[in-house]
Amino acid sequence: MILELKNVSFTYSRGTTYSVKALDNINLSIDEGQFIGVIGHTGSGKSTLIQHLNGLMQPTEGQVFYEGQDIWGSTNPAEQGKKKVSKKNRYDLRSLRTHVGLVFQYPENQLFETDVISDVSFGPKNQGLDETEIRRRAEEALRQTGVAEKFWKVSPFELSGGQKRRVAIAGVLAMNPKVLILDEPTAGLDPQGRDDILDQIKKLHDERGITILLVSHSMEDVANYADRIIVVNDGKIAYDGTPKEVFSHYRELEQMGLAAPQTTYIVNELAERGMDVDTTATTITEAKESILKALLEKRQLRKGETFV
């Protein structure tokens, strides 16, 4: 277990008339190497939730653990459980943020350096690494996000939207995080740009073993890439399971202003109308195979005949 939330609640503007409970008693554990999709409508609390994972926000109640360590508690066992933590025993939140990298929405708005490689080097530079290591990390991150070498010396502002977004992701990746949280990394990109970014993220997950949390409005994308889906609604975790488990609740998801992938609707409609298909299919490939199978069963194959 790499991250754990225990009874975490968060209230905005506590004690005022504008007080809003954004998170309500969340319990969540995240294992190393998982690829998690986080879904929820605007205002459901999902952004508040992810900002708790790298210590950008402090819960009003409850605890956040990174690798077993309470990030708002004391590092000194003698001091544990106390409300006030003395300065020297505080958890190093700065280093936590290099372990748990957060890529915000429209991260390209945060690019600022004169060329691509300097921008990506900014993170590792702040980690106090030496020149060669900074360079190595930046180059590795750029390669892994698919930014071609000819762009490294170019101003980031001259790049296309999709390329800028990759550079911004590379900037977080260069800090060598163990967990990478991406808040709608494909918003505003064209279909190809979207698939490219998601494939790169998948590659990072598979090759570097990075734990991924992908916040998305696209049910199709989450169904295609994640092995676990967390549904946030009204500050609580409404569902937590595999895509198949979660999307089987598609009617409830609609009530929450969400939906299932289109394929889920098709297989369910077919099943209702009497076809023997797998109603848990969430991707095109799954739906296709299930429909082919159902159609084939209807048909008596003649000897030697194959159905292509």
Partner: peptide, 18 residues
Amino acid sequence: HLDVPQVTELAYELKKSG
């Protein structure tokens, strides 16, 4: 670099399979 709706793609895949 474009796409088709998921429904269209599923139909297209099924058609390719005969």
